[in-house]
Amino acid sequence: MIGILLCLLSLCLVAVINTSPVILTTTPNACLNNGKYYMVGESFRPTPCEQCFCAAAGRPACISIDCAVAMCVDAVKSPNQCCSTCPNGLNCKHGDVIIKMGEVYHPDKATACQCNFGNPYLGFGSLELKANCTSI
């Protein structure tokens, strides 16, 4: 502590200043994410693939969204979406030709190709979307 005595024209003031550190304790009632506060109970999305809500004591509780494989060869994913979409519907490929689901492609007079998603080839995290071609 520091004592200060200030006298001015026979009037004296005495002030005592406490120099020990002051510790402020607060109970958070909000979550902070990317510089923005969310109140307890409020939902927010830090990324397109995360859904969060501000839980008790200002702690966020989040889940991650897992996307199904897009069943097309021309899938697109915009930056504000979590999962890829098929803008041209379900499709597969034979060589460089994209075939829509339900359509038949004839690369020559003796061959018919079509998409067959009844039994797709599943590998280690991959899905082969090749057309099933048969001789006719």
Rank of each mutant, 00 (worst) to 15 (best):
N80I: 09
A61C: 06
I136Q: 08
S84C: 07
D66A: 13
T26R: 02
Y37E: 14
L129E: 09
S10P: 06
C92S: 01
A70Q: 07
M39E: 14
I65Q: 06
S20M: 04
C49P: 02
M39V: 07
F53E: 03
A15D: 05
G123F: 09
K77H: 09
G123Q: 00
P21D: 13
N18D: 15
R59P: 02
H94V: 04
C133A: 08
S126F: 15
L24H: 04
K36S: 07
A55E: 07
M101D: 12
S43P: 14
S43R: 14
K36R: 09
N33L: 06
Y105C: 01
F44N: 05
N132F: 08
K36C: 04
G35Y: 08
S43E: 13
K77W: 10
M71N: 05
T19K: 11
G95M: 11
S43N: 11
P46G: 07
P107N: 08
V22Y: 03
V69Q: 14
C83Y: 12
K130G: 15
C54W: 01
I65K: 14
K130H: 13
Y105D: 06
V16H: 01
C52S: 04
T27P: 00
I4H: 11
N18T: 11
P87H: 15
T47E: 15
T134I: 11
L9R: 12
E103M: 02
P48S: 01
L129P: 05
V76A: 00
L129F: 03
I99E: 01
C115L: 00
V14R: 08
K77S: 14
A15E: 07
C86K: 08
V104K: 00
L6H: 15
D96S: 14
I63V: 13
A112E: 08
M1P: 01
M1K: 06
N91Y: 03
A68M: 11
S10W: 14
G123M: 05
A55Q: 15
A70S: 13
C49V: 06
C115P: 00
Q114I: 00
I98A: 02
T27L: 03
L9S: 10
C113W: 04
M39N: 15
L122Q: 03
